[in-house]
């Protein structure tokens, strides 16, 4: 893997997510906790579908689609991320057709059941990844932290999470500089040579520990005593509740009734 491309890719991704989350649309204005809850209901319903299910899953596409449109998000970065994750799923799922070769007939086409499970996993993972990314692209880290606090997640963990998020880009740039300096003086090496493993990563680590010390001092100078105080977080309004509840009802209906099958059966009945 090309590590330089990796750095800029990672940084770019976090930057894009951060920018998208700052937009002001009806979806962005929904309370973060409402979006977190909706996402979890969605994922739970999604993964609860049987491994042979395909048609019943399809109506679930309406959730990411509508969020995507109303939040006015660009398709590029999100699609790119999905494409990045899918190969792993394909890698695991592609073996299914080999292990389950029992034949089923669908619309006159003979397929092994393994293909059905494969497509089912493929669709599920695409929808799951999209739902997660849409949550971040419409919420952002600071608002997500507020949602976590409303969920009674201890402040220590939330503060620590925010600090990690805050310093990722900074430390990544530091690592990138170090690697660049290394590769300029060792142009033929593919990766860091064994003789430099400890010193390269170790020095980065020592610098990081020093930085942690300075950050701690900066916190203490502004009255930090181990407790992390935040402003009052806005609670959910009625429209936030309606958002969660109506989506949940929609998902549950999709789970209970195979809507495409109903439509198809109705049509077939009409044709006959």
């Amino acid at each position: 893997m090309n590590s330089m491309a990796n750095f800029s890719n990672t940084l770019y991704n976090m930057g894009v997510m951060n920018d998208l989350a700052r937009k002001d649309t009806p979806i962005h204005r929904i309370h973060p906790l409402a979006k977190v809850l909706t996402t979890f209901v969605y994922l739970l319903i999604l993964v609860s579908f049987d491994r042979y299910e395909i048609s019943g899953l399809l109506p679930l596409i309406f959730y990411p689609l509508l969020v995507f449109l109303f939040a006015e998000l660009p398709a590029g970065p999100i699609l790119k991320r999905i494409l990045f994750v899918e190969p792993f799923i394909i890698g695991i799922g592609i073996l299914n057709p080999f292990f389950d070769q029992e034949i089923v007939i669908i619309g006159g086409i003979a397929l092994s059941r393994g293909w059905i499970t494969f497509f089912s996993i493929f669709i599920k993972s695409g929808l799951a990844v999209t739902a997660g990314l849409l949550l971040m692209a419409t919420t952002g880290m600071d608002k997500l932290a507020a949602a976590l606090r409303l969920l009674k997640i201890p402040r220590l963990f939330v503060l620590q999470l925010l600090l990690t998020y805050r310093y990722i880009s900074l430390l990544m740039e530091e690592v990138a500089r170090t690697i660049r300096a290394y590769s300029l003086r060792a142009p033929t090496h593919k990766g860091v040579h064994r003789s430099a493993w400890g010193s390269l990563a170790g020095q980065l680590l020592l610098r990081t520990l020093d930085r942690a010390q300075r950050i701690y001092q900066a916190m203490c100078l502004r009255g930090f005593t181990g407790e992390y105080h935040t402003g009052e977080d806005a609670h959910m309004q009625w429209r936030d509740f309606i958002y969660v509840i109506s989506w949940s009802i929609f998902f549950v209906i999709i789970r209970l009734y195979n809507i495409p099958m109903v439509i198809g059966a109705l049509l077939m009945g009409v044709i006959r």
Binding site: M1, Q160, T164, L171
Partner: peptide, 18 residues
């Protein structure tokens, strides 16, 4: 607490080293 936060970021960054 700051140590944990920054170390988390360090791991993230160190994962990029080949």
């Amino acid at each position: 607490i700051p140590l944990m936060g920054v170390m988390g970021a360090f791991v993230f960054a160190a994962q990029m080293i080949n």
